[in-house]
Design a protein around this nucleic acid. Structure first.
Length: 263
DNA sequence: AACCAGCCCAACCGCTTCCCC
DNA sequence: GGGGGAAGCGGTTGGGCTGGT
């Protein structure tokens, strides 16, 4: 940013706005509106370009601008919409009253991008999205279905077994998830296999690999004979693990979970 | 207290889209 | 249809702030 005041070769002022400039801009727009931004600075007595005036008004001076920290709800909306729309900041901002595209964009780059990175899902068509996090210290996995508000929280996560190194995919990569609550969740698990181990290669490519619906933990119990789901798991990178699940009839997700730091 | 690194965010730049003639 | 000007949009910059050493 040009925070110290500078002048362009055409005499146009750049840099941080002074209180007096703000006052002039507010006063003019309140009286006349802004039918023509290019003409506005001349008429308002400002040594700025129209673009600069427009930006200052839209991002800072117009009424009902909300300042201060983003709420958890706003964060969730941004994360969800960014997943659906990508960097369509103005569209995302339009869903958040009082927030500007610049606000949303800055907030994304300074805060949400990291959050988003720590909870990626890779779907079976190879595209990345977000929504899964693992907190093994608090025994929780959360799964957020792309393109919906639906979040499933697996309430207990009793054991993990990661036996391979980052980048490896082999038959000894297993994730054991024990569910004890009677929750209305749907999970597809791998069918019993001849050798007892799923093939991790299929895990990445075969959408039919997971074939059994389980509608609650009672069904799960009757299906598996025990309240334990064993699914293939890959060590994706340091502190990141991948596993697969499916619920509510949605397509197979290959979830990348980041191990959260212990509090 | 001084220095440094990383973060935050206001503002700019350049490209795209829209709209009017 | 197309040319030009205005507005909109997203990427990027960099000064100030803050927390750590």
């Amino acid at each position: 940013m040009v925070k110290t005041t500078k002048y362009g070769k055409d005499g146009v002022k750049k840099g941080v706005w002074t209180a007096e400039e703000d006052r002039l801009l507010i006063s003019y727009v309140n009286k006349h509106g802004h039918p023509n931004w290019r003409q506005l600075p001349k008429l308002a007595g400002l040594a700025r370009c129209g673009k600069s005036c427009r930006l200052r008004w839209l991002n800072y001076l117009q009424p009902n601008i909300k300042r201060g920290n983003f709420t958890k709800e706003e964060d969730d909306i941004i994360l969800k919409l960014h997943e659906e729309l990508g960097n369509k900041w103005s569209t995302i901002a339009s869903k958040l009253p009082g927030r500007t595209d610049n606000d949303v964009k800055n907030h994304w780059h300074t805060s949400l991008k990291k959050k988003s990175k720590s909870s990626n899902i890779v779907s079976n068509d190879g595209e990345s999205s977000k929504g899964t996090s693992m907190d093994k210290y608090n025994n929780k996995i959360s799964v957020c279905e792309p393109n919906s508000d639906h979040v499933v929280v697996f309430p207990t996560l009793e054991s993990f077994s990661f036996t391979s190194q980052p980048g490896n995919l082999s038959n000894d990569l297993m994730c054991t998830t024990a569910i004890s609550n009677d929750l209305p969740i749907t999970i597809k698990t791998s069918p019993p296999l001849e050798n007892g181990n799923p093939n991790p290669a299929d895990f990445w490519t075969d959408p039919l690999f997971w074939s059994h619906d389980v509608f609650n933990t009672n069904n799960l119990e009757s299906f598996l004979g025990e309240t334990e789901i064993v699914s293939p798991c890959a060590v994706w990178s340091e502190n990141e693990y991948a596993w697969g699940c499916n619920y509510d009839g949605a397509d197979i997700f290959y979830n990348i979970m980041q191990e959260l730091p212990q509090n």
